[in-house]
């Protein structure tokens, strides 16, 4: 009896969670411009406030430059995509049945 009650409450909670997520995504898609603006603002704020963040453990030069990690994140992302994709196209990519002849 108790088991059934828990199962019922659980499924109800998960149903509501799902409904809520779908509604939230629909809302985001309807207000795409607003979301984008908030995104830009957040990025700007983090870089701008980086000038005032106290730096206790300086391991190398990058730790002293404000906004360094923003540039690092961007460059790292581009490299992590570009290098393997380039290697993939010249060498690593093979057909899916490559091993099955």
């Amino acid at each position: 009896m108790l088991g059934r009650l828990i199962a019922f409450l659980w499924s109800a909670a998960e149903y509501l969670l799902g409904k809520f997520i779908v509604k939230f995504i629909e809302w985001c898609q309807a207000n795409l411009k607003l979301i984008k603006r908030i995104g830009y603002l957040v990025m700007f704020l983090f870089v701008a406030t980086d000038f005032f963040v106290p730096r206790h453990h300086v391991h190398f030069f990058g730790d002293k430059i404000p906004g360094f990690w923003s540039a690092f994140g961007f460059v790292a992302c581009i490299l992590v995509i570009a290098v393997p994709k380039w290697l993939g196209h010249i060498w690593l990519y093979k057909d899916e049945d490559y091993y099955e002849d």
Binding site: M43, F46, G67, W69, S70, G73, C77, I78, A82, G88
Partner: peptide, 28 residues
């Protein structure tokens, strides 16, 4: 601050290169 900046700007890189990242039916 360090972590959030890296994450945010990785996201920028992702949306710039989203075409390249599409699934490719191949093995490596």
């Amino acid at each position: 601050w360090e972590t959030v900046q890296i994450l945010l700007f990785t996201q920028v890189g992702f949306f710039l290169m989203i075409k390249i990242l599409k699934g490719k039916e191949a093995i490596s």
